Simulated assay, not measured.
Amino acid sequence: MIYFLVRIFFPTRKAFIIALFSLLLCYCIEFLQLYEAEWIVELRKTLFGRYVLGQGFLWSDILAYTFGIIFIFLIEKFTLKYKIHETGFRFK
């Protein structure tokens, strides 16, 4: 989901840059869950805070983000390569 969101905001960037930025964003959000200041704990009690900031740090989430972004990156690379070859369009 994050990969697609970043792709929407940066449609002309290379897929590798989108993947790196998406991973950085996901990792930042996940590591931010280790921060336990009172104000951020209160923010996490809201619906927005729960969905955006999460509830707790898990290494399995880091692994899931990494595999998910690599998977969609590979799908985009193979799909885009196929469409460019099939239609003859060139992207810079």
Rank of each mutant, 00 (worst) to 15 (best):
A19K: 02
L24C: 10
A37V: 06
R50C: 12
Q33D: 02
L25N: 01
E30V: 08
L23M: 01
I17C: 07
E36C: 01
F67G: 08
F16E: 11
T46C: 03
W59H: 05
L47H: 13
D61N: 11
L43G: 05
G68F: 04
E38W: 05
L32W: 05
S22L: 07
F21S: 11
Q33G: 09
F21M: 14
L63G: 09
V52G: 09
I18H: 02
F73Q: 08
L53K: 06
S22Q: 04
G68K: 05
L58K: 14
L23T: 03
Y51T: 14
K14M: 10
G54R: 08
L58W: 14
S60K: 13
F10A: 09
I70P: 00
Y35K: 07
C28Q: 03
V52H: 06
R7C: 00
I75W: 04
A64Y: 10
L58P: 06
L23I: 02
I29E: 03
A64C: 14
A19C: 01
V52Q: 03
C26D: 05
P11R: 02
R13P: 00
F67W: 11
S22N: 04
Y27C: 10
Y27F: 10
R50I: 14
V41S: 11
F57L: 10
E30D: 09
Y51Q: 15
L53I: 10
I70Y: 01
F57V: 09
T46A: 02
R7P: 04
K45Y: 07
L23G: 02
A15K: 15
I17D: 13
S22M: 06
G49F: 05
L25Y: 15
Q55K: 08
C28N: 07
I40P: 01
F9S: 07
L43H: 07
E36K: 15
A15F: 09
Y51M: 10
L74E: 15
T66K: 06
I18Y: 00
I40N: 05
G68I: 02
E30I: 07
S60N: 14
L58T: 12
L32V: 08
G54A: 09
F71N: 14
F10C: 05
W59S: 08
L43Q: 11
T66A: 05
L32I: 14
I17P: 06
I72F: 05
Y51P: 00
G56V: 08
L74T: 14
D61F: 13
L63T: 11
F71P: 06
R13M: 09
V41H: 03
Q55N: 07
L74N: 15
C26R: 03
L20P: 07
L74S: 12
E38T: 11
G49Y: 00
F16D: 11
